[in-house]
Each structure stands twice: as C-alpha cells, then as structure tokens.
Design a protein around this nucleic acid. Structure first.
Lengths: 185, 185
DNA sequence: CCATCAATGTCAGTTACTGACATCGACGGT
DNA sequence: ACCGTCGATGTCAGTAACTGACATTGATGG
C-alpha cells in the first residue's frame, strides 16, 4: 500500500465533475478540486497541464479508436468513407459513456474557454484523421478536406445526439449527417 | 487635443505585433505591450478582453463581409455555393492585408493558446454562415453542414495561401479546394 | 464658469500556473 | 536486515493574467 490513497487522478476527475456541476467551472478553483480530492493544488497541476484539461482526460482512447478505424477501413473505401469510419468508431466510444458525455457537454457549453479547448481537441482529431488518410496514400489536399468534412459531420451529429430526446443511437444520427453532407452541391 | 496621445488602441496593436515578433508571445507580458504603447496595463485590458485578443482585433469587418456575401448570394445558389461566396469575401479582405496576415499567422502557429482562439473565431464564422443560410430558408441540418464544409475549404485554402511561394491569389486556391471538396465521394 | 463624461491611472486582490527543493514509503539488490 | 534509488506527493515562493473600486483629468456643452 502506498503512502497516499491510490488513484489520486481518478479522485480529482470525480471532484472536478462534481464541483463544476455544483458551482460552475469559473467558480471552482484548482485548489477546490484538489482539496475535495484530498491532494494539494500542486498535485493537481502535476496530473493536468491546466485546469481545463481535467475535462478532457481520456481523449487518447478516442484518438486510438479513430486512427485504428481509418487504418482498418476497406481498401476500396473512398477517403470520405474511411474518415467517417473513424468518426463512427469515435461515436461508439461515446455511446458507452452517454451519461458522462451529456453532463460534461453541459459544463463545456456554459464556458467559452472550455469550448476553445474542445475545438482544439477536435482539430487534433482532424489532423489525426488526415494523417491516417495520407498513410493510405490519399492526396494531401483530398486528405485534409475529407478529414475536415468527416469531423464536420461528426460535430453536427454529436450536437444532435446530445440534444436528442429519444436517445437515438449515435450511428443513426451520423448516418443522416453523412447523407446530407454527400447531398450538398 | 486629448489629455493623452490619441489612438491608444492602435499603438497597442502595433506594439503587440512588434513584441510578439521580437520575443515571442509567451515572453511578452501585457505590461510590456502597454509600456511600449505608453499606457498602463489596466488600459490594455480595457481595450482587449484578454491578452490573446490583441491578435484578433478587426474580425467584425470580416464577419460583416461574410454575412453580406451570404445574404447577397444569388437566389438560385445552393447552400454550399452561398456559404463559399462568404468565404470568398473573407478571402478578399485577407488579400488586402497579406503581409499582416502572414506575420500574424506565424505568431499564431507558434502558440497552441493562440490556435485555440483562432479556432474559436473560425467556429464563430461557421455559426454566422449557418445563420445566414438559415435566413435564406435552408434546412437546419443542411445549413450546418454547408457552413462547416465551406469553412473547412476556407481553412485548408488559407493554410495553402499562406504557404504559397508564388503568392497566388486566395480566390484561385479556394477554387481548387472547392473543386476537391465537391469531388469527395 | 461649471457640471458632466469618457478615457485613463492607481492600487490592491485573486487565481492560474511554475520551479526548486524536501519528504516518505516501496522496492530491488546485497 | 540494510541501503540506495525512485516515484509520487508536499511545501513554498514567485510570476503574470486578469478584475474591481476609486481617483484624476482634460474636453465639451450649457
């Protein structure tokens, strides 16, 4: 047994969600989160590069899922098909944590600073997708545009999935966005 | 004549560009900018809501140009056509300030915090474009996707325009991105 | 000549972070 | 059983981004 209670990181993640929900993001200091988690503020910043990052932990899992899906897409898939396969994989990860995703997105929606960070993560996903397409031999310009288009469809579908009263599966909503995207002239 | 030298804002904008170029964004404090501009730090924060904003002044002009172009697009233009017309108008404003855009983007490229802000502004543009399309009677989902696609094309074209050795006009590069976008399957 | 107003200055305070150094328990080697 | 190292945490001081409250001053209209 360690000198301290185990899973400090997990406790901070939980404390942050609680406090952000209770008082809001801006009304919560990094010290507040650390205190509730039973650590010091310094430890908080050792685990998370900044205060916002506590809401964006675990993106690596998503990124891996996306990268794998793109790399593993059928050889005859078009660039857009492959990129969208990545977004579908992303959606599957989300589906497993729907409740968490909803609560989290409420917090993010209330804060421009958090929206910025979300956009940055989405941009990282776009770059990842474009890299994946280039690795499949797709031309540079086409890779960038297919990646951006796929992420655009994801973004729109994600917002609709969150707002959906009927709790329809993400894949279904993404399919609609996909169809509408391809129908654009 | 005022109590102070006129155009404090303009002096701060200039001082910021100079200092960011000389030492970099992070090595420049808000106080440094204020000092070079001959004002106090407090005045800096009265003109710019935060340190990053000094690099994003004047986006209202762009936004107006985009909104006007979308509203003024031919009635028979498709949603994507109209949204891209907005991006073309954006490009024209950029073209007038190419030198400034290049220097500015170098600073932004060197800083994740500034990239975040740029993404937020781009997202605001996307929302603006989507609003413009909806005002034309375009369906909600289609408006969102057309706006996102157009901004995606803009984004890719902008990066290529900045990197272009031959200094080709933005409109030409945007046309290529447009064509590649529509060719996606 | 005076009241008002807008832009700035002054100053104190909070909070997000960072660097340097100390502490302590686990663990492997001897 | 002892020791040296190591990883995770604590402690503390410091910087810089903001914010609120209040004072100052020159222009301006009456």
């Amino acid at each position: 047994m360690g000198r301290w209670e185990p899973d400090a990181r997990g406790r901070m993640l939980g404390a942050a969600m609680e406090l952000f929900t209770e008082r809001g993001y801006e009304q919560t200091t990094a010290g507040d989160i650390a205190e509730r988690a039973g650590v010091t503020e310094r430890t908080f910043f050792r685990h998370f590069s900044d205060k916002r990052e506590v809401l964006f932990a675990g993106t690596e899992v998503m990124q891996q899922a996306v990268a794998d899906a793109i790399a593993g897409a059928a050889a005859e898939a078009t660039p857009l098909d492959a990129a969208l396969a990545g977004m579908r994989a992303f959606g599957e990860v989300l589906e497993e944590r729907r409740e968490h995703a909803v609560r989290r997105s409420r917090i993010v929606a209330a804060n421009p600073a958090l929206q910025e960070r979300e956009l940055l993560k989405l941009a990282a996903m776009t770059d990842l997708a474009a890299d994946g397409l280039r690795a499949r031999g797709v031309d540079d310009l086409v890779a960038s545009l297919a990646a951006q288009s796929a992420v655009a469809a994801f973004h729109v579908a994600f917002a609709r999935w969150l707002a959906d009263e009927a709790a329809r599966p993400f894949g279904e909503i993404l399919d609609e966005a996909d169809a509408a995207l391809r129908a654009l002239r």
